[in-house]
Simulated scan of single mutants.
Amino acid sequence: MVRLGGTATANHMEVFEGLEKLFRRRGIDLEWVLYSGYDNMVDAFVKGEIDLAWNGPLSYVKIKRLAANGVRVIAMRDADINFTTHFITHADSGIDTMEDLKDRSFAFGWRSSVQAGLLAFSFLKDSGINPSKDLSANSFYDDRQPDSKSDERDVVERVASGEFDAGAVSQRVMETMAEDGTLPRDAVRIFWSSPGYSHCCFTSQNDLDPKL
Rank of each mutant, 00 (worst) to 15 (best):
I63L: 09
E152T: 12
G94C: 03
R24M: 09
G27N: 04
G56A: 13
H199P: 05
E99L: 09
G117E: 02
D96W: 10
I88S: 01
L124H: 09
K211L: 13
E14G: 05
F16G: 07
M41F: 04
R24T: 10
I81K: 15
D207S: 12
G48A: 10
D51K: 00
R144I: 12
D207V: 09
T84Q: 15
D165E: 13
A10E: 13
E175M: 11
V46E: 11
D96T: 10
R25M: 11
C201T: 14
D165M: 00
S136D: 10
V188R: 01
F108P: 03
L183S: 00
G27D: 10
T85E: 03
A8N: 13
S122W: 06
I74P: 01
I95Y: 04
R25N: 15
S148N: 12
C200E: 11
D165P: 02
E17H: 01
F202L: 11
C201N: 07
D80C: 07
L135H: 05
S93E: 00
M174L: 09
N69I: 00
F121C: 06
A67K: 06
E179N: 11
A53Q: 01
T7A: 04
A116V: 03
T97F: 12
I190P: 01
N138C: 10
L34A: 15
L22P: 03
V155Y: 02
E163V: 08
S139Q: 12
A53W: 02
R77C: 10
F16A: 15
L22G: 11
K62P: 02
G181I: 03
E14I: 15
A44G: 09
F83H: 08
V169L: 08
Q205I: 01
D142S: 07
S148A: 10
P57W: 07
T84R: 15
M98H: 04
A116S: 15
K125L: 10
Q145K: 13
G37F: 03
G37L: 00
S36L: 06
R25T: 08
S113C: 02
K102S: 12
G94V: 07
P210I: 02
M98T: 07
T84V: 15
M76Q: 13
G94L: 09
K21C: 02
F45E: 02
F45G: 04
A8C: 00
T182R: 14
G70L: 08
R3A: 08
G27I: 10
A160P: 00
E14A: 14
